[in-house]
Design a protein around this nucleic acid. Sequence first.
DNA 1: AAGAGGATCATCT
DNA 2: GATGATCCTCTTT
Length: 203
Amino acid sequence: MGAELLAGDPLLAARRLLGAELIGRGVTAAIVEVEAYGGPADGPWPDAASHSFRGAGGRNLVMFGPPGHLYTYRSHGIHVCANVVCGFDGVAGAVLLRAAVVRTGADVAGRRRGPAILPAALARGPGNLCSALGITMEDNGIDLFDADSPVRLTLGEPVPSVDGPRVGVSKAADRRWRLWLADSSEVSAYRRSPRAPAPGASD
DNA sequence: AAGAGGATCATCT
DNA sequence: GATGATCCTCTTT
């Protein structure tokens, strides 16, 4: 069970990641909400909302590398968000981890997140998830299937999922590439980007 | 060299 | 539900 299961289509990889176990620095958590992101216009999964849409360079290099690696980026200057690279080596694709349910190490996660955080909210939201598991920009590019990595991933069997539009993107805002567990209420809130065109407009 | 725009979050009403 | 904080990255001049 490893990275080969994530090779290819970001949407299929996203389905595979739901229910998977993420282990990060003393905390294990089950992934309950993800978003798929594609690549450049001339690739197999054109996606104007993706960091890799304008080609390889700068922060997005990891997205063009082999599947199963961690792509981190900084959002709004402050927060760190984590993606699992999919696609193929040389073909960009990634899945943003939006929410997880902490299974073990809740005390450690709680120390990182602050005293007044409810257990269900420890890893809800992309920035909060990274905070809870101790994922930082230093982890960009690591192999999530290498036993020596500080952050690791264990895939399970596919589980039923529900889909909806991605959160906060101003391009391709109607594409239903956000997936969450059918039986989970531990998902982050949906907010359409204020800059997105009216619902129903073309990609 | 400068400007704009965030794959967010916490707090306020 | 609405808004401000905050600073990095990419695009344009």
